[in-house]
Simulated assay, not measured.
Amino acid sequence: MDAGLEAVFDRVRQEVAVRADRLWDTALALHRDPEPAYEEHQAAALLTAELAREGFRIGRGTAGLPTAFAASTGSGAGPRVALLMEYDALPGLGHACGHNLIAAAGLGAALALRAALGDFQGSLLAVGTPAEERGGGKVTLVEAGVFDGVDAALMVHPGVHSWSWAPLTASVQVQVGFHGRAAHPTGSPTEGIDALGSLIQLFNSLGVVHRRLPPGSHVQGVITDGGRATNIVPAYAEGLFGLRGATTTALEALAGELQRCAEGTAAATGAAVAVERVGRRYEHFRDNPVLSARFAGHLARAGIHLTEPEAGVYLGSSDIGNVSTRLPTIHPFLAIMDAADGSDHTPAFAAAAASQRGRRVMLAAAEALACTAAEVLLRRAVSARAWAALREKAAADP
């Protein structure tokens, strides 16, 4: 490592330390006032105020999303790095996924790196990404071109494991509605076409399909409309199905299975069926091993050591997948509580997101994110290797 880059790393650590209390105050402020998807107005205002205070150019309402933002600094000519911040909360559970720590870590990395670099050739972006839990804000940002021309997207996520990358599946929700014909179940049973019976048959068929799905693929459904009275054959029934696949290709294969099962059920029962996707598709996460290795090395200086994920374990889905399939991206998990004590999306995890361990992890992550971003901005070879790794993964894992 050249002496100039090491000096930047030293300055990053100093700049994070200077801002440590401010960053923690930001994390706690977000924790105290949790806002759900697309309603994160206070969070966006707080984060952009901190960025503007230190000289970032602020763009609000990015991609038409009122609570999204894109702040930038640098000359604009040269490499571009995006530090991503999530800040939406879970209804009823607050920051039980630790997004307050994600936001504070990304903020700290952005502020520290700008101060450490001074004038530099390139661009540093701090991107506020709303609605990860429900809605897929990053999908909208990707489609709007926010990440076009960006060489690396960097973020971290609190968890109960310290893993160098996130085994996140592709996912989509599908609504299936069966249209039958109402009738009296005793007086004129032959006149009815039981929409609810059709939906139940679809559940049974999917249960058979589920047994032969590949690892990482999964389908889970709920009945959202099953009729209104027991003395009427239901004329309409509706189910909502969550589909997951280890890859986006596997997800689309599963969606095709669902479509065929629904159409086959309708043909067998005489009902009509409508199959529609609900919300945005989350693509699977494609880790960039070049950048993940650089991040892990920097994080180790703080005494946090990352391992590979456990084989065959998947931890849900996230809209970061839609970023990762387009440009070099990292999304490591950093433990703020132990797996033996529970999991995320629980009150215990919400408490951990405001704990002293959470503070230590957030500050260490801010340093490691900033140092990784500095390598992409200042060492062209790192970016070149990262893009090569992404192309290799895309070829092997379409």
Rank of each mutant, 00 (worst) to 15 (best):
Q121Y: 00
T372G: 10
A266W: 02
A70E: 11
G74P: 04
R301W: 10
V176D: 00
T186S: 15
S355K: 08
T269E: 00
T73E: 06
F349L: 10
L83W: 01
P66T: 08
R57I: 01
S171N: 07
P309V: 04
D194W: 04
A37E: 13
R134A: 12
G74C: 05
P36R: 10
Q220S: 09
G136I: 03
D10Q: 14
A71W: 11
M1R: 13
S383N: 08
A374E: 08
N100C: 10
L369K: 11
Q201F: 03
Q175M: 14
S188P: 00
D319C: 10
R380V: 12
S292Q: 08
P214L: 07
S162I: 09
E40K: 09
A103H: 02
D21T: 12
G227P: 01
D338I: 04
A395R: 15
R134V: 15
D287C: 05
A340K: 13
R60E: 15
M1P: 08
E252H: 15
G192C: 08
A262H: 03
S217T: 13
A68G: 06
D338E: 15
A115S: 14
N288P: 01
A182N: 05
R286T: 09
T48C: 12
R181W: 06
Y38N: 06
E133I: 07
A394M: 13
V176L: 13
T247L: 05
L258A: 03
L378E: 09
L306A: 09
G316D: 06
A370Q: 06
A63Q: 07
F120P: 08
I200K: 00
L196H: 06
S72T: 15
A7N: 10
E238K: 14
A112D: 02
A384S: 12
A126Q: 06
S205Q: 13
A170M: 11
T269M: 10
V361A: 14
F9W: 13
A373C: 11
V127I: 15
A350R: 15
V150Q: 09
A116C: 12
A293Y: 03
A103V: 07
V156N: 00
C261K: 05
A353R: 01
V273E: 06
R357A: 10
L202C: 04
D194K: 05
D119Q: 14
A268R: 14
I336P: 02
L84N: 02
F333C: 04
I232D: 00
A49T: 12
V18D: 09
T325E: 01
